[in-house]
Design a protein around this nucleic acid. Structure first.
Length: 219
DNA sequence: AAGTTCCA
DNA sequence: CATG
């Protein structure tokens, strides 16, 4: 509707910046199936709280699927082929994930997106993710595709410099944000999650973040 | 600073 | 107590 995103995004396509779009409700029809896949992945590669280089602990719980998974520990940030907890490869990326990410990217003007990594974030009440860039990927020509599920959150959308004043947008169950090209390294984050209830996730929010982490980006 | 704490 |  004409009203800003107070309660729902209602399949709007909102331009955040050149190369950055909020696709309201884009994944709504398949959200239940996505949550079921998350549960299957988490049974194999459990959610865990990663440490940062400086000894802090992230409040967001994370796991991954795909050929590469994002991890943080006292050595820093990087992508790994295997889950450090099990020594086994990360669970395979479900074809539904791959297809959804490709369609969302295409809708945002980035055809041919072939993600090889999907970071899965789980937010409980009080969880936050402070302003950062996604810059650990081997190439930055592929976009980022971010899928929101469950309890709504306040998305912090900054600029190309950390000092740029961020704007904020609500992200609801089924919304997707895509950013690439000139927006690929935009600073972003999530405000502290407010306690709320969603019929499919209880008081939790899940986020799928698709990236191209490794070199080949051929279809 | 993909962290936490403090303070206006 | 919420926000920056």
């Amino acid at each position: 509707m004409m009203l800003p995103d107070l309660f729902a995004t209602d399949r709007e396509k909102i331009a955040l910046d050149p190369g950055a779009w909020l696709l309201g409700d884009f994944a709504l029809d398949e959200a239940s199936a996505l949550l079921a896949e998350i549960a299957r992945i988490a049974a194999q590669a459990p959610f865990r709280h990663l440490e940062t280089r400086t000894g802090g602990t992230m409040s967001v719980a994370m796991t991954n699927c795909g050929d590469a998974g994002w991890v943080s520990d006292r050595r820093g940030y990087r992508y790994t082929d295997d889950d450090p907890l099990s020594g086994q490869a990360w669970p395979a990326m479900p074809s539904q994930f791959r297809d959804l990410a490709r369609r969302a990217a295409e809708t945002a003007g980035f055809p041919g997106f072939a993600p090889d990594a999907c970071l899965i974030n789980r937010y409980a009440p009080g969880t936050r993710l402070s302003l950062h860039q996604d810059r650990d990927e081997a190439r930055h020509d592929a976009p980022i595709v971010s899928v929101s599920l469950g309890v709504p959150a306040r998305f912090i959308w900054g600029g190309q410099q950390r000092s740029d004043r961020p704007r904020r947008h609500n992200l609801f169950h089924g919304d997707i944000v895509v950013w690439g090209g000139p927006a690929r390294l935009t600073f972003h984050g999530i405000d502290m999650l407010r306690k709320a209830h969603h019929p499919e996730t209880g008081d939790l929010r899940f986020n799928l973040t698709f990236r191209r982490a490794r070199l080949p980006n051929l279809a």
